[in-house]
Design a protein around this nucleic acid. Structure first.
Ligand SMILES: [Zn+2]
Length: 434
DNA sequence: AAGCTTTGACCAGGC
DNA sequence: CGCCTGGTCAAAGCT
């Protein structure tokens, strides 16, 4: 196709004419190594998006012109007076967004959000050290040993709400989040299932051991008792280096390839891609000025197990998405540092949150498989989540809810609580027994 | 030296 | 058809 730009022979853009999926895929696959991804952002537009949820917390401090200015003051373990955020830290320190879901939330302390610590959260997932919090990490280098352990341990319980709508799932957890996994199943119905961690990976069970973290095996969780306010230690993550932090996210390595601003909000959105050679997994992170992560969206699946180069691997959970057939997009939005609502969506429209959403954070997974997806490749469409509540207009954070929907029959259902099945029935229209 | 981040520009989809 | 917006590209710079 015509390439406007002279410089490059075949402009990538020209490629774009191809189905997005292909393009992406190809790019990833082929170019991953060589082509550098960079990102760009155009900030010109801002208006509304799904941003809605996040507003509240953002207000907290945002003096900074841009996200960067803020720096996490307390990287070190020192908990801030407000420690609430510390909770967050825990999550972050340990893990990946996926896992986040699992992380415990505290609903009790809404205020806590304000604390800088929250950044930690972000930090984990992204960076924290520096300022920005985003993923950008720049500097630090340390190990992540600790976080892995503690982070997950604490789990409280989420209130999962499952909806069966089209294919989309959102999870909002006031208290804790769950991991959402997606497994591919031939089934096509939209069941909603949510599990915390998943356990089902078709391909790489190993990597997907997220469950382990959340799994009951971790007795140590303090969830029952007071939230881990006291455990700021987790925060230790502060000292993690960028790279490490990345890994800490979900155990995978990510490369940022772009950044942009969302229309309605000031929060810049960063785009990340898995660095593995032929992995098409992508992630979109939105951070508030404060540096807190307001939303994380995952797209695609990993083709490989998580790199365990670091040290402690066994316990690390991996949020790998190995859905071959199904594509999921997951978005995590964090309205407040404390909350981590998770919503999972698939590309189609997602109507979630019908009831009340607040905006805490949400996580959604949408699959962007290239193969299967034909239709929208370009826009990730995670917004849908908001749609539902956006109409409401007011989004206060009240009760977080977790709604997970997936196309696959098996989803994730783990909130950290244990459930006993007391019945099973076949619902017509649904191949899967309920 | 390699990899990653930064940043502006370009492209494509939706309206 | 044009505008708006989101997403990606890719050179340059930094670590
Ligand atoms: Zn990957």
């Amino acid at each position: 196709m015509a390439s406007p730009s002279p410089t490059i022979n075949s402009n990538p853009r020209s490629f774009s004419s191809l189905p997005p999926q292909f393009m992406k895929t190809s790019s990833f696959t082929n170019n991953n190594n060589n082509s550098s991804n960079m990102m760009t952002m155009d900030d010109d537009h801002h208006q509304n998006n799904w941003t809605t949820f996040e507003h509240n917390h953002q207000q907290v401090g945002l003096d900074v012109p841009k996200f960067k200015s803020v720096q996490p003051p307390s990287l070190p373990l020192s908990p801030s007076p407000i420690s609430p955020s510390s909770y967050f830290t825990s999550f972050s320190s340990g893990f990946s967004p996926t896992e986040f879901f699992n992380s415990p939330l505290f609903l009790s302390s809404p205020n806590a959000f304000a604390s800088p610590t929250s950044e930690a959260f972000a930090g984990q997932s992204f960076n924290w050290k520096n300022s920005s919090g985003e993923d950008q990490q720049q500097g630090d280098k340390e190990d992540e040993k600790n976080y892995s352990d503690f982070s997950f341990q604490t789990q409280t319980k989420p209130t999962p709400v499952f909806q069966s709508s089209s294919s989309m799932s959102q999870v909002q957890e006031p208290i804790k989040k769950q991991d959402i996994w997606k497994s591919n199943e031939p089934t096509k119905q939209t069941d909603y299932s949510s599990e915390r961690v998943a356990a089902k990976s078709d391909q790489y069970p190993t990597s997907q051991s997220i469950s382990s973290e959340m799994a009951p095996s971790k007795p140590e969780t303090h969830s029952n008792s007071v939230p881990r306010s006291g455990y700021l230690n987790y925060t230790a993550s502060a000292s993690l280096s960028v790279r490490e932090q990345r890994r800490s996210e979900d155990g995978f390595n990510w490369r940022k390839y772009g950044q942009k601003q969302v229309k309605g909000s000031e929060n810049p959105r960063s785009y990340y891609k898995c660095t593995h050679p032929s992995c098409s997994m992508k992630k979109k992170v939105e951070r508030s000025l404060d540096g807190q992560i307001t939303e994380i969206v995952y797209k695609g699946n990993h083709n490989h197990p998580k790199p365990q180069s670091t040290r402690r691997t066994s316990s690390q959970p991996s949020s790998s998405c190995t859905n071959s057939g199904i594509s999921d997009q997951s978005v995590v939005t964090l309205g407040n540092p404390q909350m981590e609502p998770v919503s999972i969506q698939e590309d189609s429209s997602a109507s979630v949150g019908e009831e009340d959403f607040e905006q805490t954070s949400q996580t959604s997974y949408s699959g962007g498989d290239e193969d299967a997806l034909g239709p929208e490749a370009k826009r990730w469409k995670g917004d849908n989540e908001n749609d539902g509540y956006s109409g409401l207009g007011s989004r206060t954070v009240r009760e977080p809810r977790v709604v997970v929907q997936t196309t696959s029959e098996i989803d994730i259902l783990d909130d950290g609580y244990r459930w006993r099945k007391y019945g099973q029935k076949v619902v017509k229209g649904n191949p899967n027994a309920r």
